[in-house]
Design a protein around this nucleic acid. Structure first.
Lengths: 151, 151
DNA sequence: TAATTTTGCATCGTGAACGATATAAATTTG
DNA sequence: CAAATTTATATCGTTCACGATGCAAAATTA
């Protein structure tokens, strides 16, 4: 069939796109009580690993553009989770640091990854399958990131 | 370490989210000349498989909410790709059908899946790895869809 | 058949994502 | 050192994505 390749069933990207959306949806019951969104949770993960980072470092670790992260951080600042201060050496930089509220949220969030793992196991009856997917996804991400930067 | 689970490195969802965004980005060189976005391309895939479907069917096949698909279709109608007509039996329904322009775009798009496959192979030196990921992703998607519908 | 509930779609508001563009500060070049 | 370039961030416009809500038509129930 001439258009076989155009069938939805044959598309990897569609799977990734859908799986990502639905998995993010699975975080809702855990993030809603904290009053944060999934991308905001990602920013917190980055800052919990290392506090006080410029916007650019955060964006880079999340593979996002700064024009996505800046408004995200502005909303998080308004919500009292982070502070944004001018850099000392390089005044162009905005150093993002956790507030007391942002630091304390780590304690409330620390069980979330285990909850999600359990949920996936319960839903699919499988875990190893998804753990095994991680290196493949990393390879894909690294490859795509490299080529899109080289343009 | 108490917070080990919170490390970004450990998160599957972050990989899916990132891989999906970057893969969608890889479609840009092919979709921009056609003047469509990736979600619009998905709608076309659905309609190319079967023309004249109600909004709900399209949304269901893409695992999207109708309130996402409706504005998407409105933009596609404005772009002259689809028509939206009132249903005959059930007048609540809006039947979406391809215009001449929408039908013809299939010919221009038919090489896209192969281009993307080639690109992924070239970037990662691997294909089987990602083909093997598909059933796992389907299992995840089906599981998540089932549980979120049962709420 | 009348009243209630469900269904299909649309509208609204909010929060991403990102290309294009702007701006000021730092860096490199001439 | 002055001019040109690069860098870090921000702003703007467009398109998703989705929860909440609205509304009319269909289906169900009383």
């Amino acid at each position: 069939m001439e258009y076989e390749q155009l069938k939805l069933d044959n598309q990897l990207c569609f799977r990734l796109y859908t799986a990502a959306r639905l998995t993010m949806g699975a975080y809702h019951p855990y993030l809603d009580p904290l009053g944060i969104t999934y991308p905001q949770y990602l920013v917190l993960l980055v800052l919990w690993e290392q506090d006080k980072q410029p916007v650019n470092d955060i964006a880079h670790k999340l593979f996002l553009e700064t024009n996505t992260v800046t408004p995200l951080l502005q909303r998080m600042e308004k919500a009292g989770l982070v502070k944004r201060t001018k850099g000392k050496e390089d005044t162009r930089q905005r150093i993002v640091s956790l507030t007391k509220k942002g630091i304390e949220m780590r304690e409330q969030a620390k069980h979330i990854p285990d909850c999600l793992s359990d949920e996936i196991i319960q839903i699919t009856g499988e875990e190893e399958e998804f753990v095994r997917m991680i290196p493949s996804l990393d390879k894909l991400i690294e490859g795509l990131k490299r080529t899109t930067n080289n343009k």
